[in-house]
Simulated assay, not measured.
Amino acid sequence: MKLREILIDESDSVRYNTSPSPSLSWLSDGHARWLIIESATHDEIAGLFNSLGAKSEMIADHIKGENWIQRIERSDVYIRANPSPTAWDAFEKWYHMVVISNIIITIHATEIPDMDDYIQRWWLDRPAPESHVNCMLMQIVKMFVSEEVTFFNNFRLAIEKHAEGLRLADPTVTVEQLESRMTQCYHMTTVFYEYQVLLRSVEYNTDRTLSSKSFVETFRSGAETIGILRDGIDYMQRRLEELQNQHLMDQQVKTEQRLRILTIVSVIFMPLALISGVYGMNFDNMPELHEENAYFMIMGMMGLLITGMLGFFVLKGWFR
């Protein structure tokens, strides 16, 4: 299990800790915190919630099922996000969000490679938000939504490069690459759907702590942005299917062209092979063999056959 902590201290400065030790004292020290949990087992997550005073004995048994987060029996748990996970080991960046008192907890199925970079750009290189859980939540949502927009744009550009490669008949563009991109689209659709569920669940939360206009507007705007990205992913899936079909058709055309050339060569050499076979037979009574210019006559006849057949194929458009 990998833990990270972002803390807003008394001087309204951001402190980043890569090895925090969650405890009950966090709930009473008045600091707004963001605890990031990555690559944790079910039992490790249950133990962590126990350390924060949440009765979570049933989490290990129910974490894969629906509404598992509601097994945390604390009255001040006022966000229960993403109630219907698809698969714990799926390709997902954000799996659950829970807020206990002044602590924001996000649980991620796998370690996020770019998280240090996100934190540097969004927390350490910027003025700290107010030391309040609402302000931290808004900053977290803005960070993840903005990074997803950036990821989406880069992904779209990569697909357009694939399209350009297909148009230019780039041999490095393969069907396997397109299939990999389609798989990524499928995973991204799942992730964006769960983001949207999360943001909508907060937007419609009736808890008075979360009812400020700017707070709700941040989550509503984030949900709308993620919805637009989902529509974009649907479009890119269709685009990838078109590219895949185009690639397969191009390969089929190339195969047909090769077969056409082989067919033409075979048709040309069939009569030549027949003539060679006839005059290669060891019969004594073959008058042509005793003609002075027989060799040149046969070679000329073969040349006329080749020329005639090539002309016929050109007229029929077989070389187009």
Rank of each mutant, 00 (worst) to 15 (best):
Y193T: 11
W122I: 08
M297T: 07
E92I: 03
V197Y: 05
I72G: 04
E160T: 12
I298H: 04
F152G: 00
I298D: 01
A294K: 02
R167L: 14
R230S: 15
I63C: 00
H108W: 15
M297N: 09
I59F: 09
H42Y: 08
W34F: 11
L248H: 01
G30A: 02
L262Q: 05
W94C: 12
Q257Y: 09
S13C: 06
D117P: 01
Q257M: 13
R320E: 10
I107S: 01
I261A: 08
I306D: 00
Y235V: 10
Y186R: 07
M270R: 01
H42E: 06
I100K: 03
H31G: 02
D76P: 10
W26N: 00
I72V: 05
L315K: 09
Y204Q: 11
E164Y: 06
N153M: 09
R230T: 12
V149L: 06
I140G: 00
L210I: 00
I37S: 02
V197A: 06
Q177Y: 15
W88V: 11
R15Q: 13
M286T: 07
N293Y: 14
M58W: 15
D125L: 11
P271S: 04
D12I: 11
M138A: 12
I228T: 13
T225K: 06
G317W: 02
L48G: 05
I79H: 01
G227W: 03
S13R: 06
I159C: 13
Q177W: 12
G227A: 10
R80E: 05
G280N: 03
G165I: 07
E10K: 07
M302E: 14
S23Y: 03
F215Y: 11
S13G: 05
D284I: 15
T209E: 14
I69R: 03
K93I: 07
C135M: 10
L243I: 08
V216Q: 09
I228R: 10
F269M: 14
G165T: 07
L305G: 01
H96I: 07
R260M: 15
E66L: 08
L305D: 02
K2L: 10
S276N: 13
Q257G: 06
S214P: 07
I63Q: 00
H62L: 08
Y193F: 13
S101L: 03
V77W: 05
E288A: 09
E66P: 11
I45P: 00
L272I: 12
M302N: 05
E179L: 14
Q244D: 11
M299G: 08
A46F: 00
S221C: 14
K316R: 11
E203N: 14
V216F: 06
R156H: 11
E164S: 06
M58R: 12
F219I: 02
R71K: 12
L27T: 06
R167K: 09
I36D: 15
V145P: 07
W68F: 10
L198V: 03
L157E: 15
T183N: 15
V202N: 02
H42A: 05
E179A: 10
R320V: 11
M249Y: 03
I107A: 01
L229S: 06
A46H: 00
R126P: 00
V98S: 12
